[in-house]
Amino acid sequence: MEVGLIHYLTVAAVLFGLGLFTVMTRKNAVGILLGVELILNAAALNFIAFDHFVAGGVAGQVFTVFIIVLAASEAAIALAIVLQVYRNHRSIMADQLTSLKN
């Protein structure tokens, strides 16, 4: 059995679905960030799969490196924000944070 494009797209769709489910159901800010990371990984997998099976160039790899850099910077900034929110509100539950004024 040869692994083809449809197999990669299926795995990426499952990753995207799990990431979307995680973002929609988690109340914890760190859990929401993990869901966003899953969604970004699904997009990166799609870029690599289409680049390998359709285009045959390096554009998908360049986009994937860009997504990895974006995910790393997003994680660093978001975790810094979560730490600051925890210092001010003593909670990182997203449903309890109604105002960021304080």
Rank of each mutant, 00 (worst) to 15 (best):
M1G: 15
M1S: 14
M1T: 14
M1N: 13
M1D: 14
E2W: 14
E2A: 13
E2I: 14
V3T: 15
G4T: 15
I6E: 14
H7F: 14
H7G: 14
Y8C: 15
Y8F: 15
Y8M: 15
Y8L: 15
Y8D: 14
L9P: 09
T10C: 14
V11K: 11
V11L: 15
A12Q: 13
A12I: 13
A12R: 13
V14I: 15
L15C: 12
F16A: 13
F16M: 14
F16V: 11
G17C: 11
G17A: 12
G17R: 10
G19C: 11
G19V: 10
L20K: 03
L20E: 06
F21R: 09
M24L: 14
M24W: 10
M24H: 05
T25I: 10
R26H: 11
R26C: 11
K27T: 12
K27F: 12
A29C: 11
G31Y: 06
I32R: 12
I32V: 12
L34H: 11
L34I: 10
G35A: 09
E37M: 07
L38D: 10
L38Y: 10
L38Q: 10
L38M: 12
L38T: 08
I39K: 02
L40K: 03
A42T: 07
A43P: 11
A43H: 06
A44P: 11
N46D: 07
I48S: 02
I48L: 12
A49D: 05
A49G: 05
A49E: 06
F50L: 11
F50K: 07
H52F: 10
F53V: 03
G56V: 03
G57E: 09
G57M: 05
V58T: 03
V58H: 05
A59V: 08
Q61P: 00
Q61A: 01
V62F: 03
V62Q: 08
F63G: 04
T64K: 00
T64E: 04
V65Y: 05
V65M: 09
F66V: 07
F66K: 02
F66S: 08
I67Y: 05
V69H: 01
L70S: 05
A71I: 00
A71C: 00
A72P: 04
S73F: 06
E74P: 00
E74N: 02
E74Q: 02
A75N: 01
A75T: 03
A76Q: 00
A76G: 01
A76I: 05
A76M: 04
A76F: 05
I77S: 03
I77M: 06
I77L: 09
A78H: 00
A78T: 02
A78W: 00
L79R: 01
A80F: 03
I81Q: 01
V82P: 04
L83N: 03
V85W: 00
V85C: 01
Y86W: 01
R87W: 01
H89F: 01
H89I: 00
S91Y: 02
S91V: 01
S91P: 06
I92H: 00
M93P: 02
M93I: 03
M93C: 02
A94Y: 04
A94P: 04
L97S: 03
T98L: 10
L100P: 08
L100S: 04
K101P: 09
K101F: 02
N102Q: 08
